[in-house]
């Protein structure tokens, strides 16, 4: 437990000093706010929550994949991970420490999105629940990419297409029915469906997201078994 705490504190301090990563956690809520105020509010044909649900899906799909894969790949590349392992840190302790910070940051941003969207009561709980499950999915995917990558450059090369598909997928489905069917298997699309319509059912989106988590956890286990965490 003390190793998880030490790595959690390290990761949190490091994140606050890592401007490119920090920007990813700020830019999407800011974009949602700008679009809501300048576009959605003046136009009665656009739902007030449209840009909140769109940018929250993009945030869940992109920011956490990039930050999780980048953090792990950086620690591998700089060999700092090797010193942690030599100091007796177990791989799950390292991953819980790093993932815990990203999950906390994702939770805070999710709450900001929920408040911005004016969600309350059960709507607030539904929005937050789906966001947190999606954040968890992205952290798992980002960690898998980070483990599979030799360095940050490789992590970016692998993470960019994954983040583009998952982040922008829900936006593309607004214009194309075939895309809607294809992207419906991804958690970000289900997140978008669940949070953009207050009356949408939760069973199907929840089932798809949980299935995504199961697949991503299996991929993560496979990557970890093959590559390990040696720096």
């Amino acid at each position: 437990m003390r190793s998880i705490r030490a790595i959690y504190v390290k990761q949190a301090k490091d994140m606050f000093k890592n401007i490119p990563v920090l920007v990813q956690f700020i830019i999407y809520p800011v974009m949602a706010l700008i679009f809501t105020v300048l576009v959605a509010k003046p136009d009665e044909t656009i739902a007030d929550t449209m840009f909140v649900s769109m940018f929250s899906s993009i945030f869940a799909g992109m920011a956490l994949i990039f930050s999780a894969s980048g953090a792990i790949a950086e620690d591998r590349e700089s060999k700092s991970l090797r010193f942690l392992v030599m100091a007796g840190v177990k791989p799950h302790e390292y991953l819980l420490g790093v993932g815990g910070v990203l999950f906390t940051a994702g939770s805070v941003v999710s709450v900001v999105f929920a408040l911005m969207g004016g969600y309350a009561g059960a709507g607030f709980a539904k929005f937050l629940g789906f966001m947190l499950l999606s954040c968890l999915s992205s952290i798992l995917l980002g960690a898998t990419i980070g483990i599979a990558s030799k360095n940050q450059q490789a992590a970016t090369a692998l993470g960019t297409p994954a983040a583009m598909i998952l982040g922008f997928g829900p936006m593309i489905t607004m214009f194309n029915d075939t895309a809607k069917k294809i992207f419906s298997v991804f958690y970000t699309q289900q997140l978008n469906i669940a949070v953009s319509d207050a009356h949408a059912g939760v069973i199907k989106p929840l089932g798809v997201i949980l299935a995504n988590i199961a697949v991503l956890a299996a991929l993560f286990a496979l990557a970890y078994k093959r590559k390990g965490l040696r720096g």
């Binding site: 030490a6 790595i7 390290k10 301090k13 490091d14 700089s78 700092s80 007796g88 840190v89």
Partner: peptide, 23 residues
């Protein structure tokens, strides 16, 4: 080691405190 593996964005003290926490 020849590659020091230090956390470059953290301070000297924070770098050591990470390991003080681990130990």
């Amino acid at each position: 080691l020849d590659e020091d593996g230090l956390y470059t964005r953290l301070s000297c003290l924070d770098n050591l405190n990470v390991f003080a926490g681990v130990y």
